[in-house]
């Protein structure tokens, strides 16, 4: 791998191409969907044939798909994502209002997941004879065997219905914990394997021989060296995070991109669907690019080639 500024430039270009291609493919895919928003509106209220035709013309839906695409692309290039057909609000505004909810849930879940995952893996290396090794395996099996969808439903069933503790719907703590445990499970096991290997390395023995404390060894020697493994897992973690957030939002009735996406897909609200997909694609590509950068920053071997 030849990596330098030219390398990052090429990677950036490739990432950009993926986002553009997704935008194009989705645009046409969505328009293959039988029935447009006008059909949905007509089914909900009484619209005469002339009103339907007028509405289609107003929304530009009577034009060919190619013409619609050119119009959309030109507007998108100016940063204008169009109007939501159903809610008659700017799409950018709808996304803007939905993003904080999703980000807050994702950030909470990520914080819980990283703390738990890294903490368990580190604890299992420091005290290999205690319960932590078992916990690492348990949380790993948990995340493989129990989809967040199931855990979320079970949580609703147990906490709000059987125990009657709290109004579960509409609050973000429980879903964040559910997603967080899932992330921790995916992270803890590979991280633990890696930490075990590093802990056996001569430089760790040397540090121990110098009389350094356990905390110093863990924070100065073990964890920084395990960072590349954690970062390499970021794609997997992100996929779990996005899928989990989407599902949990709908399940727990939280405002956010997942709820917006579902409503838009069910209502054939093309501009909103496109925008949501674009936002997710951008997020994924951004994280991939950041992963690339972090790996190079943390691993000097990748910098000079």
């Amino acid at each position: 791998m030849t990596r330098g500024f030219a390398g990052s430039g090429a990677a950036l270009l490739r990432h950009g191409a993926v986002v553009c291609a997704i935008a194009v493919v989705m645009f046409f895919l969505i328009r293959v969907i039988p029935g447009d928003v006008v059909d949905v509106l007509a089914a909900e209220g009484d619209l005469s044939d002339s009103e339907i035709a007028a509405l289609r013309a107003e929304l530009g839906l009577d034009r060919g798909v190619a013409a619609q695409f050119v119009a959309w692309l030109a507007a998108a290039a100016r940063g204008d994502l169009g109007l939501s057909i159903r809610f008659e609000r700017p799409v950018a505004e709808m996304i803007w209002f939905a993003v904080p909810g999703t980000l807050a849930l994702a950030a909470k879940a990520l914080a819980i997941g990283l703390t738990l995952g890294i903490g368990l893996a580190a604890a299992a290396v420091i005290w290999p004879r205690r319960v932590f090794v078992w916990l690492v395996n348990a949380v790993n099996l948990w995340s493989i065997a129990l989809p967040t969808f199931c855990v979320g439903l079970a949580a609703i069933l147990i906490f709000s219905i059987w125990l009657g503790w709290l109004p579960v719907l509409g609050q973000a703590t429980l879903p964040a914990i559910v997603i967080g445990i899932d992330i921790a499970g995916q992270l803890a096991k590979p991280l633990h394997e890696d930490l075990k290997e590093i802990a056996a390395a001569p430089f760790v023995r040397a540090a121990r021989a110098r009389g350094q404390s356990r905390a110093t060894i863990v924070f100065r020697h073990l964890l920084p060296n395990a960072a590349p493994v954690a970062i390499a897992l970021s794609g997997l973690i992100l996929a779990g995070l996005i899928g989990g957030t989407l599902t949990m939002e709908v399940l727990f009735g939280l405002p956010g991109l997942g709820t917006v996406a579902l409503q838009a897909i069910l209502g054939r609200d093309y501009p909103v669907v496109q925008a949501v997909i674009l936002v997710f694609a951008l997020a994924i590509v951004l994280v991939n690019a950041l992963t690339d950068l972090c790996q190079r920053a943390l691993d000097p071997r990748l910098r000079h080639d």
């Binding site: 993926v18 996005i242 899928g243 989407l246 599902t247 579902l262 897909i265 997710f280 994924i284 590509v285």
Partner: peptide, 10 residues
């Protein structure tokens, strides 16, 4: 590059 659940939905 797409979340699988969102892709399947669409």
């Amino acid at each position: 590059a797409m979340p699988s659940i969102l892709l399947a939905m669409t």
